[in-house]
Each structure stands twice: as C-alpha cells, then as structure tokens.
Design a protein around this nucleic acid. Structure first.
Lengths: 149, 149
DNA sequence: ATATATGCAAACGGTTTGCAGGGAG
DNA sequence: CTCCCTGCAAACCGTTTGCATATAT
C-alpha cells in the first residue's frame, strides 16, 4: 500500500515546527519525503537505509529523533508487534485502523471496524477509564502462507 | 489480582516436561511457585527479584529460559505494552481476556468481551487470515489518575 | 547572535547465547 | 553415564543520549 496525498502531513509538520520554535532542516525534509514515499508500515532502520541511498548521509539518531518528533506532532503512530517489530505509519486526523499480522511472513494488513471501537468505548466507560488510544493486533496466517503449509 | 487455583498449571507443566524429555529441577520449581504467588501481570525482572529474596539464588537467564518454556507449553502468555513493559500472565486453557493500561500509573485492568472476539473472527475470515491469537490494548487514565489531574 | 539540530560514538535496557561445570533421569 | 540444565559473563539489538560542531532563524 502506497501513501495517499500528504498535504495535511506537510502542513501539520510546518504548524508543529512553528508552534514549538523548531527548525526546518534539510534532514527533516529528506526523512519525511522518503517516509511518505515508502509503504504504509515503516521500520526506523528501513527508513535510514532508504534515506541514505538517496541524498546526503543522515545519521540513524536523526531518523529516530525525527520519528519521535512526528509522533509528538501526532502525525505518525507507532505499533509494536508481538514479533518485536516496531513500525511507524501515517496518522491522518480523525482516522483509525487496526492490524492483522502474518506470523509466518510478517505481512501486515489493515482493517477498520466501528463496532469494535464502540464496544471499546463502552468497556472503558464501565471500568472508569478515560480512553486515549488503543491497539488491536490479530495474529495469524495470511492467505498465501496458509497455502504453503 | 491474585492467581486462582493452579493444579492445571502444575499438571500442564509436568505433562510438557515429560512429553519433551525435559527435566524437573529445583530452579524451575522455585520459579513457578513464585510466579503463581505473584500478581496477575509479572515482569521478568520482578520475578527474578522475588525468587532471589526467597530461596537459593537463580540466574536471570534461567528466569527467561523458564518463562520461554512456559510460553512454549502454552501455560503463560506474554503481553508487550506500548510503554515498553513486557509482562507474563497465566493462560488458563480456553480463556482469554484483554487489557486496559493506565498511561499515568501503569495499572493494568482486565476485561473479557465475546462480541469483540466474534467480530475479530469475522474480520479474519473476510481478510483470508487463519487466526491464531490476538491482543487488544486500551490505553487511558484509570479512575484515580483522572482525579489527580 | 542565539538556540536548535546534527553526526558520531558511547551508553542503555531488556533479552539471548556460549561455554564450562552441575545435576536429573 | 548421558543429556539437559544452570550460572556467569559476554553478546545482542533497537533505541537513546552526551558532546562538540554545524546551521536555521
């Protein structure tokens, strides 16, 4: 899956930098450009390699610092899967989806389900929690890995 | 929450050891005893400390090796939360629950919801996945942390 | 001019591994 | 007597941090 139009992302980033007296830098621009050009679920190391194949060299620390900045700005979300992978993905305002992860090949599929979201809100209410976010991971075998075994 | 009767656990462990030509050892016994005497959600390091406060000394590596063995045996499950904590909990056959995690104090509450489980099965079916397991984490503020802020 | 960013390398924290000696079956 | 298990320390791996230098505003 390739990422959709990303004006909201650049705009959001500009706004966040401005609001926090942070700076526009060559590295941040390059990192974000590559991130937006990559598949939906990106690991820090992959982004590091992609960036360094293209333009000038950027340190891995800067990749992490930039991803953390994007998280702060609520422009990306991070998912940590049970297999240990940690991936970053776009967080378009007002949207949410969850993940199916293939335990054989690692493929990641997405889905949205309003019914689950509403039950979650209900449960939080019952338990007296004020809900901020959630993560739902379904682990199994994708179609092609089922055929293989 | 304190753990319920655990005959099934010891029986399951004996069976697993026997079936795999593994050995009953003093350390395994001590680790499992402490694990069962601890709260529902246990981190490796906590278990390590508890075990070493009581009986003879046990290495941290043995704690990890034993927890992994119990996972293999399907007697415990591991949950990795977004805050980085990795906890182990009992996995009584045929049961499943999910978690609410307080983003302020770290408290973990549990819930069960059959409706969500059934929607998950439906989604996996639609996407062609053969479902093996799942994890649902709700992050928010628990009742007492809401009061504080 | 000043504060923020960067690169590098070192530090980190949780977990796993290699190996030599110890103990269960 | 054999194989499995343990303790220890070292290795690991992804991520973060300290510091001196570079750069945006």
């Amino acid at each position: 899956m390739i990422k959709p139009g990303s004006k909201w992302f650049w705009d959001g980033l500009d706004a966040y930098l401005l609001a926090n007296q942070l700076k526009q830098t060559k590295q941040r621009k390059m990192i974000v450009e590559e991130f937006l050009a990559m598949p939906a679920h990106v690991q820090a190391e992959q982004l590091y390699q992609r960036v360094n194949e293209k333009g000038e060299k950027v340190g891995l620390a800067t990749i992490y610092r930039t991803l953390n900045l994007l998280k702060e700005a609520k422009l990306v979300e991070q998912c940590v899967f049970a297999d240990g992978r940690s991936v970053f993905e776009l967080s378009p305002p007002g949207s949410h989806h969850d993940h199916l992860i293939c335990i054989s090949c690692g493929e990641i599929a997405e889905f949205e389900n309003e019914e689950i979201e509403s039950v979650q809100r209900q449960i939080a209410l019952e338990k007296g929690f004020k809900l901020y976010s959630h993560r739902l991971y379904l682990y199994g075998l994708c179609t092609s890995c089922q055929r293989k075994t």
